[in-house]
Simulated scan of single mutants.
Amino acid sequence: MIPIMLDLTNKHVVVIGGGNVAERKITSLLETESLITVVSPTITATLESYFTQGQIIWKKKNFASNDIKDAFLIITATNNPFVNQQVRDAAPKDVLINSADTAEEGNIHFPTYVKRGRLSIAISTEGASPSLAKEIKEKLELEYDENYETYLDFLYEARKIIKNSNRNNQDKRMYLKELTDKKFLNKQKQEEWITSFTRYKK
Rank of each mutant, 00 (worst) to 15 (best):
N10D: 12
V14F: 11
N20R: 15
A22F: 02
A22C: 05
E23L: 11
E23Q: 03
R24M: 13
K25H: 04
I26G: 02
I26A: 07
L29G: 14
E33F: 13
E33K: 11
S34F: 08
V39C: 07
V39K: 11
T42L: 15
L47T: 12
K60N: 13
N62C: 14
F63S: 11
S65N: 08
D67L: 00
I68F: 00
K69W: 09
D70V: 00
I74E: 04
I74G: 01
A77G: 00
T78N: 00
N80V: 04
Q86P: 09
Q86E: 14
V87Y: 07
A103N: 11
P111D: 06
Y113E: 06
Y113K: 08
V114Q: 03
V114M: 05
R116G: 01
G117R: 00
A122T: 04
P130S: 01
L132M: 08
K134G: 10
E135L: 07
E143R: 05
D145Q: 11
Y148S: 03
L155V: 09
Y156N: 06
I161P: 04
I161N: 03
S165G: 05
S165R: 05
N166Q: 05
N169K: 11
D171I: 05
K172V: 09
K172I: 03
K177C: 14
T180R: 03
T180F: 04
D181T: 07
K182M: 08
K189S: 04
K189A: 02
S196Q: 07
T198H: 00
R199C: 13
